[in-house]
Design a protein around this nucleic acid. Structure first.
Lengths: 340, 340
DNA sequence: TATAAACACGAAAACGTTTTCGAAAGTTAA
DNA sequence: TTAACTTTCGAAAACGTTTTCGTGTTTATA
């Protein structure tokens, strides 16, 4: 790579000082018009661009925000990043992305790398392993130093910072209410292991709705799917039984899609024999047939809000208002799988 | 945010010079064991981390690679980024992501931003608008400065740099061959406008396979879908006709999924009446029913290879070997939609 | 004509680090 | 006792900027 041209190069070329060149290129009135124009022309010709590292070092500001997510090959996280990137750009920030791969170790090392001066703030969704072990001291260290931090989606109450989350309880209530409205009596819940915060919140909403509607909660209809084992086998045990449920609420799109496939294979008609709703973050629900009613998660909006909170926090350095918690309400996209 | 602790702070604390502190923390033998241990303990206690901006400025190396992609909410690009990130991390690099949103302007400004010293090299997939207008001077400028650059997927021959691409022609041939093998006679092609390079390459493979198998190419079976108009309407015109094709090759997953839906709505049985194959980059094909046979694109592998080419180029600064072009062969994942 | 103001520029510090070179002590050997 | 080494540290340059504070020259004013 050819070395880039610097102020020093230009200064030597014209036999002037570095400060003169700097001022000339910034259009300072301190420099005579003649000198300024000559320097400007030369700089243009050689495509001078100020070295951003030097600027960052001097100004103690990088205009970069770091994002740490569990994985990127996941439609929900892609949409969040999209939201972050769009908004950050508008405010003059760039985005640096790191993946924790759901690993505690990697999350810690990512945070350590990014907070050595390369970013002005951090947006994080916590790794599964971290939530499992409930070790949050790497976050507490950030808080102690007042490092700008925003958590989204997978958050933890004990970490004192700005947060943006989805109203998972409300979303699950909406979905369950809808299933009940269309006449479902035995609604199965496909959820995750308890330590996944969103899974247990959605379960909470499901239960609330049942109680509100005077339906007895049947623990046998609540299935905790283990992501590390075969999903088909686990979900078959829900549907391929003598007396299958007449509706399913799945806490993510994959579970819902698999439930749909298995139902059809067993000869059940959707939505008449069995209605299906999934929390969604992708395109599958839209393109399967029948298309699946979904609780829409608004990832892009989430990203935008997270970026907004973070940048505000970065730029109002002095002010330390209370930490904010933005709650995004998911809405129900009704499709064929619940149109009885 | 609390100001971070620096060498200067520590030096003042112990009444020694900055260089002594620096050496002590690097375990230099020049420093007495006693001094070294005291300084180390203090630094540990206050969680000293060298400011990476200062290091980067001094070493003229950022260990960051920039990635510019058309959009991130697209499974294919997510997998590529995943591949890039994994490999880059192994080699000690971080990843900075920018989106061009298919816009020429944004691509230019992204390149300009990233090449001002904030990254050591660039991995790019060219924006649609850029390919449409065929203006590549922003890339030529990079080449002229020997700036490390790797293009992937959407590449342009005239830009002289390392590239990694998918063998789109071969993939389309494999798919078409397979459709012919299972007895298809009238194979429709759902492709994109001509200026999209991958679209026209896949069309080329489709035609080659037909010719090879002695089937006459029927231009009326080649449909150029316009992404800016309603996809359902356009694809309906392919299937909802008196004499529909008995097989469909779609150049992406969405087209394939829509074709599948419309076929079922029209009462056609997949794969008996109509077989379907799509180039894939997502999960839809796997979870619809029937599941769709796909040409698998191996995005993660692509990302890994792109990162490998780039980092090698960055690190062998002096050596300028010829530019490499890696070609990845897609393979056919046979699913229900072609099992006659 | 003397003084003040305006103009055009340079020196140097600052951001935080690494590294080369030199130098003052202390130690060893002859 | 003297010469040669070793040990332990500091000064300063370098990376590329911006910005404050001079300073010398010219022009305007009284």
């Amino acid at each position: 790579m050819k070395p880039r041209i610097t102020l020093k190069n230009i200064a030597k070329e014209f036999g002037v000082s570095i400060s003169t060149v700097s001022k000339a290129l910034k259009g300072s009135h301190e420099i005579s018009e003649e000198t300024r124009e000559r320097i400007q022309a030369y700089a243009d010709y050689y495509n001078y661009k100020p070295n951003s590292l030097a600027l960052q070092l001097r100004s103690q500001k990088t205009s970069v925000i770091g994002v740490i997510i569990p994985e990127i090959v996941h439609h929900f996280f892609s949409t969040v990043i999209n939201g972050i990137e769009q908004y950050a750009n508008e405010r003059g920030y760039n985005v640096m992305i790191c993946l924790s791969n759901e690993s505690y170790e990697k999350e810690v090392s990512n945070i350590s790398m990014l907070t050595n001066g390369s970013v002005d703030g951090l947006i994080v969704s916590i790794a599964r392993e971290t939530q499992e072990n409930q070790i949050y001291k790497h976050f507490d260290a950030l808080i102690k130093d007042d490092f700008p931090l925003v958590l989204f989606d997978r958050v933890v109450d004990s970490i004192k910072c700005d947060k943006v989350i989805i109203d998972d309880i409300g979303g699950a209530i909406k979905a369950t209410d809808h299933l009940i409205e269309i006449g479902s009596k035995r609604i199965a819940l496909l959820t995750t292991q308890d330590y996944i915060s969103v899974g247990s919140l959605r379960k909470e909403g499901y239960i609330k709705s049942l109680i509100k509607n005077g339906i007895k909660v049947d623990e046998n209809l609540i299935y905790k799917i283990d992501d590390k084992r075969d999903l088909y086998e686990q979900i078959k045990k829900v549907i391929n039984v003598k007396n299958p449920p007449d509706a399913i609420l799945a806490v993510n799109e994959i579970y819902a899609a698999i439930a749909s496939k298995i139902s059809k294979e067993r000869g059940l008609v959707i939505p008449n024999d069995i209605a299906i709703i999934g929390f969604t973050s992708g395109l599958i629900s839209e393109f399967t047939s029948p298309s699946l009613t979904s609780v829409m998660q608004h990832g892009a909006l989430m990203g935008k809000q997270a970026a907004e909170l973070l940048i505000n926090r970065i730029e109002h350095k002095g002010v330390d208002e209370d930490y904010q918690k933005e709650v995004i309400s998911p809405n129900l996209k009704i499709r064929e799988s619940t149109k009885r």
